[in-house]
Amino acid sequence: MGEALAVASLLLFSVNVLLVPAASARLEQAAGFAVALVANVVGAAVLLAGQLLLAGPPTAVRWPAVGLFALGGLLTSYAGRRAYFRSITAIGPTRAATLQASNPVFAALAGWALLGQSLPLVALVPGAAVVVGLVLVTRVPGTPGERRSWLLPGTAVALLGAATYGLGNVARGAGVGIWAEPVAGSLLGAAAGLLAFALVERDRGRLLGAVRRADPVGRRLWVLSGLLTIGAQTCLVAATRTVPVAVAVVVSAAVPVVVLPVGLLLGREVRLRPAAVVGVLLVAAGVVGLVLG
């Protein structure tokens, strides 16, 4: 079940990646981010209401877990996502995605250091294949005479985003280990992310005006984006109940396996470089190995 939930998280995240460009074309990213955060909270509340109707109230609240879920939401829903968006502007989407591929590495290190989750060799090998594959898929091709450098302005922001995502996933994994309520935990994290945005964002009036004036289709697309991400995050949190955090994060991060073939079908990818083809195969093999192992 843990592996199946991680794959579900991967699929939901992948659909969101395909959706965001269309949403951004109709409503600017900063305002859309606010709409998506609100949709995160509403979607998680609906999921929790459904759980209450079908399975009754959650178990007794464990306050240490509440703090961990809130911390996870701050690190992922707010800080990690904001840093990722800013790195896209600073160094471009391809380089930002390449550095974001280090998210599972941070999750594995933090899971080992903070939770004592050691990964067996059977998980380390396919996990490494996924990370290498992600780097190959998103690597920027060089031109003759071009000087390669990862130390571009914005590189630190991209790495900060990957690190906060990894640490946030570990915090949520620790929370669900204390209080096995992933839906309630997702709601707490989403609410913490929205509260942080409301407190930190200085230009709230302009963003609200942009949302009100926006194309209604754009608003609906960003709402859908928020629902997809909260669904993906809930599946990821639930997956960590039965599989190590790093394994669940590696599977959910294998977005190019879904996005690139769909992009080809939709005409968004004209061709794939040989290295990218090898990367897709590595990621696919790694995900299969993690799920079957």
Rank of each mutant, 00 (worst) to 15 (best):
S149I: 07
S102W: 09
L119I: 02
Q117R: 04
G111V: 13
A108H: 04
P104V: 02
P104D: 03
V132H: 06
A101Y: 08
I88F: 04
Q100M: 14
S87Q: 05
A158R: 06
P126K: 00
N103I: 03
G92H: 05
S149C: 12
G92D: 02
A101N: 08
G166N: 02
V132T: 09
L160K: 08
A110K: 00
G161T: 00
A101G: 11
W112T: 02
G111L: 10
V125A: 01
P153C: 05
L160H: 06
L134R: 09
L159Y: 08
V125R: 01
R147H: 13
N103A: 11
T155R: 02
V140K: 12
L115P: 12
T89L: 14
A163I: 04
G142R: 15
P153Y: 01
R148A: 15
V132W: 04
V131R: 02
L99T: 09
E146I: 14
L124H: 07
Q100G: 13
L136C: 10
L134M: 14
T138W: 14
P93Y: 06
A113C: 13
V130Y: 08
I91Q: 09
V135P: 10
L167N: 00
V122S: 09
P144I: 08
L121R: 15
L136V: 09
S149T: 14
G145T: 14
V105A: 11
G111C: 13
N103Y: 07
F106A: 07
L114G: 03
L152Y: 11
T143M: 00
G166P: 02
L134F: 12
L115H: 10
V105E: 01
A162C: 12
P126L: 00
V140M: 13
A158C: 09
S87W: 04
A107W: 02
T138F: 15
I91T: 10
A129R: 03
G142W: 11
E146S: 14
S102D: 03
V140T: 14
L114H: 06
P120I: 03
L124V: 11
A128Y: 11
I88P: 01
Y165C: 08
S118P: 11
T164C: 01
L159N: 11
A158I: 08
V135I: 15
G161P: 04
R139Y: 12
A163V: 04
P104E: 05
T138N: 15
G145R: 14
W150E: 13
